[in-house]
Amino acid sequence: MSARPDILCIGSVLWDVIGRSDLPMVAGNDKPGRITRLPGGVALNIAMTLRRFDLTPALISVVGDDPEGRDLMSACGRMGLMTQHMLVDPDLPTDRYMAIEAQGNLIAAIADAHSLEAAGACILVPLWDGRLGAPEAPWSGPVAVDGNLTEDLLAEIAESPVFAASDLRLAPASPGKAERLRPLIGHPRATLYVNLEEAGLLTGTVHAGAQAAAEALVAAGAHRALVTEGGDAAACADDAGCRLCTPPRIEARRVTGAGDTFMAAHIAAELRGASREDALNQAVLAAAAYVAGEDHG
């Protein structure tokens, strides 16, 4: 593994606790299924997928100095992810995410990222103190940032000199946090990765489809926007126009992490030199394989 990371992944690094059932479910149901605990969080999901594409990501986040945090750091290290720039805080518990899925659909989820929010700008110290960058020599590579950061911290990133040369890739984390990304919409080097609902929240409009939503985000000032519409379409828009891709038809077996896989696959394809059209196609295929359970991730 190289001493310098290929990309920084800033945001949630936590344990995913996910219950999945093959039976239909609605609120209040109690059904048999399987419960797993896996390393997760948007930033970590992106990093894990990037590693599968032979890239070396560095995680920028926080864990507690507790058994859960130590186990999570060890798991990340075994996967080949750089963890030396992570903040380990003895006063904060390691964050968690809990979800229920049935027949490939998300029934409900709760994201407990309170420690990440409490740590705030402290997680960014390695970009200021020379380890990864400094105001006079900012990090010049790609940076994946997720919306589990507070709106204040995202606004700080938008103006910070240590991100002045960065290729910013932004993920909202969930519809409930999409509007946190508003301070970065007009950033001249930022690419947005959102689903159709999140695009609507950012623009204040209900869009007919992925293409309309991506074009609306660019019209609102976004440098570039990628919008996914479940299994129906994915679009990438910028000043040069809009590209549309239709995913293959699959049987959905899981959904948590699909958007992170799409984003990571797109970044990896572009870092390998793929054209914008090919990068979009590769991202769509990677996300479809993930949802179908074909990548064994």
Results as ranks from 00 to 15, higher is better:
1 M>P: 13
5 P>I: 09
5 P>S: 08
5 P>F: 11
6 D>V: 09
10 I>F: 14
10 I>R: 00
11 G>N: 00
11 G>W: 01
14 L>N: 14
15 W>E: 01
16 D>K: 10
20 R>W: 10
21 S>P: 02
22 D>F: 02
23 L>A: 14
24 P>Q: 08
25 M>F: 01
28 G>T: 03
29 N>Y: 12
32 P>D: 12
33 G>L: 08
36 T>E: 15
36 T>L: 15
38 L>D: 10
39 P>I: 04
42 V>G: 00
44 L>S: 03
46 I>G: 00
52 R>Y: 11
53 F>C: 13
54 D>Y: 11
57 P>E: 06
59 L>K: 03
59 L>R: 02
60 I>G: 00
60 I>Q: 01
62 V>R: 01
64 G>H: 07
64 G>W: 08
66 D>V: 13
73 M>W: 07
75 A>T: 13
79 M>L: 15
79 M>H: 14
80 G>F: 14
82 M>T: 03
86 M>T: 01
87 L>S: 09
87 L>D: 03
89 D>S: 09
93 P>Y: 09
96 R>T: 15
97 Y>M: 08
98 M>L: 15
99 A>M: 05
100 I>Y: 10
101 E>I: 01
101 E>Q: 12
103 Q>Y: 04
103 Q>V: 08
107 I>T: 14
110 I>K: 14
112 D>Y: 06
113 A>P: 01
115 S>V: 00
116 L>Y: 04
123 I>V: 15
129 D>I: 01
130 G>A: 05
130 G>L: 03
141 G>Y: 11
141 G>D: 00
144 A>R: 01
149 L>Y: 07
150 T>G: 07
156 E>T: 07
158 A>M: 07
161 P>N: 13
163 F>S: 05
163 F>H: 01
165 A>K: 15
166 S>N: 07
169 R>Q: 14
170 L>V: 07
173 A>N: 02
173 A>T: 10
173 A>Q: 01
174 S>G: 14
175 P>A: 09
175 P>M: 09
180 R>G: 02
180 R>W: 02
185 I>T: 11
189 R>Y: 03
190 A>Q: 10
191 T>G: 05
195 N>A: 06
199 A>N: 12
202 L>S: 06
203 T>Y: 10
203 T>L: 03
204 G>D: 12
205 T>E: 15
205 T>A: 14
209 G>H: 05
212 A>Q: 13
212 A>W: 00
222 A>I: 05
222 A>K: 10
226 L>G: 02
230 G>C: 02
230 G>L: 02
232 D>R: 15
233 A>I: 00
234 A>K: 03
238 D>Q: 07
238 D>I: 06
241 G>Y: 09
245 C>F: 01
247 P>K: 10
250 I>S: 04
250 I>G: 03
251 E>S: 12
252 A>Y: 02
253 R>T: 06
253 R>Y: 08
254 R>L: 12
254 R>V: 09
258 A>H: 05
259 G>W: 07
261 T>H: 10
264 A>T: 06
265 A>W: 00
266 H>M: 12
267 I>D: 04
268 A>L: 09
268 A>R: 06
271 L>T: 11
272 R>N: 14
275 S>M: 10
276 R>Y: 02
279 A>W: 07
281 N>E: 12
282 Q>I: 05
282 Q>S: 11
288 A>K: 00
291 V>L: 08
292 A>T: 06
295 D>E: 13
